[in-house]
Design a protein around this nucleic acid. Structure first.
Lengths: 340, 340
DNA sequence: TCACCTTAGTTAAACGTTTAACTACCTCCA
DNA sequence: TGGAGGTAGTTAAACGTTTAACTAAGGTGA
């Protein structure tokens, strides 16, 4: 591997001159520049990124970690998010260091290691929770970080997020327009931040179309298929007149559970009994019936968090609109709400 | 951020001594060692990984790139593979640098950049194809790399792979035992290496159970849901007596297409008309009916390729058994072949 | 003619480690 | 008594860059 020294020798100049030519950081005479460039080309020279990093105190690496989920869940959104991050990072001149964290206990150690060894310049967080120790740690050390997902009360840091409220409200309006008047929701437990916003969208949607809120139509479920099933069962235990004619689910996995339960019971999923998911996971369109769902703008979020993080790292100021970015989801209408 | 100099000053020794203590690389007296450790603890010292990298000429980073797939496909296996790689890399003292490559044209540039700047110590390839320019480049430069997926003819490099042949043969036996005598396969085009091995498993399975090979029962399809549908349609255009009673699909996505088409036509998917997939994607178990499928041992493969790559990087010899590792998949039997 | 500026280049320090080579001291035994 | 050997530590070079400070040469204006 050729170094700057080799190029300097080959071109008959000092290494400083080579550096100035390569980085275009000071005027160099035509002739010398030509010789240097020529020598660099001949030797196939590339500056060592490590030496640069040491000198500059920057690695041009951004870290992203995710928590392992049981394989039967998959984590389609975060998977797509990794892709989006990688792409966006590359465009910004960075690379992505991706590390799955083991158990939540040892998680913070890994962050400390990465930060304190100077492995990465900044960190992207996702799936933050209310009292997130990673946030506490990073905030306290002043290390650059951003999150996919809004900050909990008491925190203030840059984030980008999907506007779950708008997404679910859209779903409510969609169902209302199809004639539904008793619309239920399978929501996450109250300690889920993202779940709260989506639930707000439910309330907001009901208000927009002038429907009364009925607590009996809200079931709190965990993120699992069998929980979706359980949620629907619980709704169907209501007296017939009080049963919903449509159900909004706070994730596609839950929607799959609800749909499976409905179909098992012979409910006509479609126009008469509507089911809406959230995420638009890749197979949503291939389910039977294909699932109407709220699509998260994952690529845009990846792009947004990288922009924010790079600004932080490079110490460019962020105004309020850039610090907190809420991206609009889209409603993808399929047969699970429209099939006759 | 404290450096080794700070620790040396604090402990009243030279930086060399600190280094020897930290790395346990030469005997140091009890007392001095105690003082150094104490100082390091007080200053919360961590060796800079960049400085170490520069000195050692190793980054302890391994690169993994994947090609972007259209979002309606998802790439569940490669997604799980990233997780597995990250975990395995961490355990081996490495980190994972994950980079999606843009168009195939500019792909090779990115590899050159990473390799020649010394960004990573080694590279993991996946989805290699017959005349893979990445393989050609890496082979030629002698840079350490391994692949998830076997080498094409003419190449020789370390790889780990799932034994697709065994997996499909298993599926054939399973269907045979259920009483099927006309078993079809929706296979990938012939230029797919992985597809070839799976197809071999089909032939091998037929032979094991003494069934004749019928070319009419083989349909070549691309990796897409609508291709699975098309494949099944084509099979059902055969005269009734020649139609298959079970179909093995070379991927779950194709199986989903085949299953959707079968159900649309009122075929009783299950014991009487069996469908088998390949991959065991996360939602396979939640399909209706749940999909019988061949599960790829993705975690083990991730582990295996990292072991191979680290051996290459650290110049430990690999014997033949370690150089090429074929991992057994498992057949996950669900209702798509057993439901009454 | 001389001081000063400009231009084009070089020298050397710095980034934070590791490690080979060296020094100083002590102990041991012939 | 003195050399050999061992122990515990230090010095300084090296890894490959960037960049501030310097030098040398030529041009310019008073």
């Amino acid at each position: 591997m050729a170094t700057i020294k080799d190029v300097a020798r080959e071109a008959g100049v000092s290494i400083a001159t080579v550096s100035y030519v390569i980085n275009n950081t000071r005027p160099v005479s035509q002739e010398t520049r030509r010789r240097v460039l020529e020598a660099a080309r001949r030797l196939n020279y590339r500056p060592s990124i490590i030496a640069r990093s040491l000198q500059a105190g920057r690695t041009h690496l951004i870290g992203y970690s995710w928590r392992p989920l049981p394989p039967e869940h998959g984590s389609p959104i975060l998977d797509r998010f990794i892709h989006a991050l990688g792409r966006a990072a590359y465009q910004a001149g960075y690379h992505l260091l991706a590390f799955p964290t083991p158990d939540v206990e040892r998680e913070i150690e890994i962050y400390e290691e990465l930060v304190e060894m100077g492995r990465v310049d900044g960190i992207v967080l996702s799936a933050t929770n209310i009292h997130d120790q990673r946030v506490a740690y990073l905030q306290q050390t002043g290390f650059p970080f951003v999150a996919f997902g809004r900050a909990g009360a008491g925190w203030d840091y840059p984030w980008s997020d999907v506007d779950g409220t708008a997404g679910v409200a859209m779903a409510v309006r969609h169902l209302y327009e199809l004639g539904h008047r008793r619309i239920a929701i399978l929501a996450w437990p109250e300690d889920s931040l993202a779940g709260q916003y989506r639930f707000q969208g439910y309330l907001q949607g009901l208000e927009e179309v002038n429907l009364d809120f009925d607590p009996a139509l809200v079931v709190r479920v965990e993120h699992a298929e069998h929980e979706g099933r359980r949620g629907l069962r619980q709704l169907l235990e209501l007296p017939p007149a009080e049963q919903p004619t449509a159900v909004i689910c706070v994730s596609d996995l839950i929607a799959i559970g609800a749909m499976n339960e409905a179909l098992d019971r012979g409910l006509p999923v479609g126009r008469r009994f509507g089911i809406v998911g959230f995420d638009d996971i890749p197979i949503a369109r291939y389910l039977r019936p294909p699932l109407t769902t709220v699509r998260q703008p994952v690529d845009e979020i990846g792009q947004a968090v990288v922009e924010q993080l790079v600004a932080l790292i490079e110490e460019q100021p962020l105004d309020e609109a850039q610090r907190h970015r809420l991206l609009a989801p889209t409603l993808v209408v399929r047969a699970s709400t429209t099939a006759e």
